[in-house]
Simulated scan of single mutants.
Amino acid sequence: MAAHTLTSSSLSSISSSSELRKFNSYATFLQSFKSSNLLSSFIGNQLTIRQPNPNFVVLKRQSTNMTVSFSLPTSKREGVSAEKLPKWSARAIKSFAMGELEARKLKYPNTGTEALLMGILVEGTSQAAKILRANGITLFKVRDEIVDLLGKSDMYYFSPEHPPLTEPAQKALDWAIDQKLKSGEDGEVTVSYLLLGIWEQKESAAHQIMVALGFNDVKVKELWKSMDKDIVCSHK
């Protein structure tokens, strides 16, 4: 419906009471129409404000979650099939995924032991993470140590979606699997195994950072003793 412009001459042309009543009714209708609809000043078309589609938000979240791996990259072992390899706990998988993300935040080309260490702290609920924090090793301290040790990346560099593992980081994962196999125990490979695997890489950046922040063999023994608690937590 096109909008009408009312002038003084058009008002004076309304002479009869019947026409006046018609005019008042039309004005009332026009006013209520404007208050209940958004009209374009150009063509009078109704403007529709669309509400966010909740289904879109759900789908977006699902696609994000699906990018998280259900396992961690480990090397093949002679005489041990992939089906017989122990599985990683949900916390270990999340720690690994958070480590990749931290590497990307720092714009590093690889996921090193230092990134895995940050991932453990970001996940934060494992016994390993609790022991680290109890000994004053926090995410912010580790990140500062990493920047001091490895430097900052080029601000225009963009890390790949899944930065490949460095050799020490891969060895840390393999060590964790090997130790679980040697134990002969059932159950998953927990974050404690992952952290111990990182510690065992003596020349790695994460080992140097942990030593600089006060971690030592006494703390390692404490971590070994916490293994049973970590196994219980991984099944919650």
Results as ranks from 00 to 15, higher is better:
Met1Asn: 09
Met1Pro: 12
Ala3Cys: 04
Ala3Gln: 08
His4Arg: 10
Leu6Val: 15
Thr7Gly: 11
Ser8Trp: 03
Leu11Ala: 10
Ser12Cys: 01
Ser15Pro: 03
Ser18Met: 02
Arg21Leu: 10
Lys22Asp: 15
Lys22Gln: 14
Lys34Phe: 10
Asn37Ser: 09
Leu39Trp: 01
Ile43Leu: 06
Gly44Ala: 08
Gln46Gly: 14
Leu47Arg: 09
Ile49Leu: 12
Arg50Phe: 14
Pro52Thr: 12
Pro52Tyr: 02
Asn53Phe: 05
Pro54Tyr: 06
Pro54Trp: 03
Lys60Val: 15
Lys60Tyr: 14
Ser63Glu: 09
Asn65Glu: 07
Val68Thr: 13
Ser71Glu: 08
Pro73Phe: 06
Pro73Ile: 10
Thr74Cys: 08
Ser75Asp: 12
Lys76Arg: 14
Arg77Met: 10
Gly79Leu: 01
Gly79Asp: 02
Ser81Phe: 02
Glu83Pro: 06
Lys84Pro: 00
Trp88Gln: 10
Ser89Trp: 03
Ser89Gln: 04
Ala90Arg: 03
Arg91Asp: 10
Ala92Phe: 03
Phe96Lys: 01
Phe96Gly: 07
Glu102Val: 00
Glu102Ser: 13
Arg104Asn: 01
Lys105Asp: 06
Lys105Asn: 13
Asn110His: 11
Thr111His: 01
Thr113Asp: 10
Ala115Arg: 01
Leu117His: 00
Met118Arg: 12
Met118Gly: 15
Ile120Thr: 13
Ile120Phe: 08
Val122His: 00
Val122Leu: 02
Val122Met: 00
Glu123Phe: 08
Gln127Tyr: 07
Gln127Val: 14
Ala129Trp: 04
Ile131Phe: 03
Gly136Pro: 07
Thr138Arg: 02
Leu139Thr: 07
Leu139Ala: 14
Val142Glu: 03
Val142Tyr: 04
Asp144Pro: 00
Glu145Ile: 00
Ile146Pro: 05
Val147Ile: 15
Leu149His: 11
Lys152Leu: 06
Met155Ser: 14
Pro160Met: 05
Glu161Val: 14
Glu161Pro: 01
Pro163Leu: 02
Pro163Ser: 04
Pro164Gly: 12
Leu165Ile: 14
Thr166Pro: 11
Pro168Gln: 05
Ala169Cys: 12
Ala169Thr: 15
Leu173Tyr: 03
Asp174His: 05
Trp175Gln: 09
Trp175Met: 11
Ala176His: 05
Asp178Pro: 05
Gln179Phe: 05
Lys180Ser: 11
Lys180Gly: 11
Leu181Met: 11
Leu181Asp: 04
Ser183Val: 09
Gly187His: 04
Gly187Asn: 05
Glu188Tyr: 10
Ser192Phe: 01
Leu196Gln: 08
Gln201Leu: 09
Ser204Cys: 04
Ala205Ile: 03
Gln208Asp: 05
Leu213Ile: 13
Asn216Gly: 14
Asp217Arg: 10
Asp217His: 11
Lys219Tyr: 06
Glu222Met: 09
Leu223Val: 11
Ser226Tyr: 04
Ile231Leu: 09
Ile231Lys: 13
Val232Ser: 07
Val232Ile: 13
His235Trp: 01
His235Cys: 07
Lys236Ile: 15
Lys236Cys: 04
